[in-house]
């Protein structure tokens, strides 16, 4: 870091950056590197054998599939909820606005047992769904429900501020040019919100892929059916299969890094398009 050599007028640069780098390395970087170092002790064929067994592949399918679906559901309902919170006034709005962040604040284990109780055979919702032939608890559908729960605030909280900052003049202009309300929303509002919607989608998806606590109670955790990838890591760990656990973790980490880069790019796009508008 060449610039660190020049003198600076504000104090504390060396100290703060030094501490930041040391703490970051000790807590995050070195331990994360352990995953790849440990994985590197495997030959590629050994590694591939571990991460491509049918049981592990089934967990990828469930974790990534359910996460995609949950994020998509959250996009639809999250945008509607953000729309209601910004555009309409109704009783209890402030309370609801505050409670949208509940999944951020509620410990995942609490969410997990509560959702299970709701959707179990005799639960508040389960008792009506079960006669219709819809089984939620202890099935992949339960995984989806939990992932929708934890992902909702990501979409609402990325779309809401952009919608708030959106100048009504754009819509007034569209209306004055003869557009119907639906055309205005479809051609003016949605394209403007698109970067934020995609960012919210990606954030919800990334969180859902790694989620553990809220899922394991409701999932039933049947191998090949309702087992998620984080759980298989734990299962392997409990069987003292450290290498196996680490190999699967490496696959997940790489997926997370790719998602992180994607999210960074999306957020930069959101900021750029926000600047363009104002």
């Amino acid at each position: 870091m060449a610039a660190a050599i020049t003198r600076r007028v504000l104090p504390g640069f060396g100290l703060s950056l030094g501490f930041t780098l040391a703490y970051l390395s000790l807590i995050v970087l070195v331990p994360l590197a352990a995953v790849f170092v440990k994985t590197a002790t495997l030959s590629f064929s050994e590694f591939w054998a571990i991460v491509s067994t049918p049981r592990v592949v089934a967990t990828y399918r469930l974790s990534f599939g359910a996460s995609l679906l949950a994020a998509a559901i959250n996009v639809v309902f999250g945008v509607l909820l953000a729309w209601s919170l910004v555009r309409y006034s109704f009783p209890g709005k402030k309370l609801i606005d505050a409670l949208v962040d509940l999944p951020f604040a509620l410990p995942t284990a609490v969410a997990g047992i509560s959702l299970t109780a709701l959707y179990a055979k005799n639960g508040w919702l389960g008792q009506y769904l079960e006669p219709l032939g819809i089984k939620v608890a202890f099935t992949p559908l339960g995984v989806l429900v939990a992932l929708v729960f934890i992902g909702l605030p990501f979409v609402v909280r990325t779309v809401q501020p952009v919608l708030e900052d959106l100048d009504v003049e754009f819509e007034e202009a569209a209306a004055s040019l003869g557009a119907t309300r639906w055309q205005t929303v479809y051609r003016v509002v949605i394209p403007t919100l698109l970067p934020a919607i995609l960012t919210g989608f990606a954030l919800a998806f990334a969180r859902a892929v790694g989620e553990y606590g809220s899922v394991i109670f409701i999932a039933g955790n049947l191998p090949m059916v309702s087992e998620i990838t984080p759980l298989i890591i734990i299962t392997k760990l409990e069987q003292y299969d450290y290498v196996g656990a680490t190999a699967v973790a490496a696959v997940m980490l790489v997926a997370s890094f790719i998602l992180l880069l994607l999210i960074n790019a999306l957020q930069a796009w959101t900021r750029r398009s926000a600047r363009r508008i104002t």
Partner: peptide, 10 residues
């Protein structure tokens, strides 16, 4: 962006 399970594992 790291799964909590991996956070423990490391």
């Amino acid at each position: 962006s790291v799964s909590p399970v991996i956070a423990g594992l490391i």
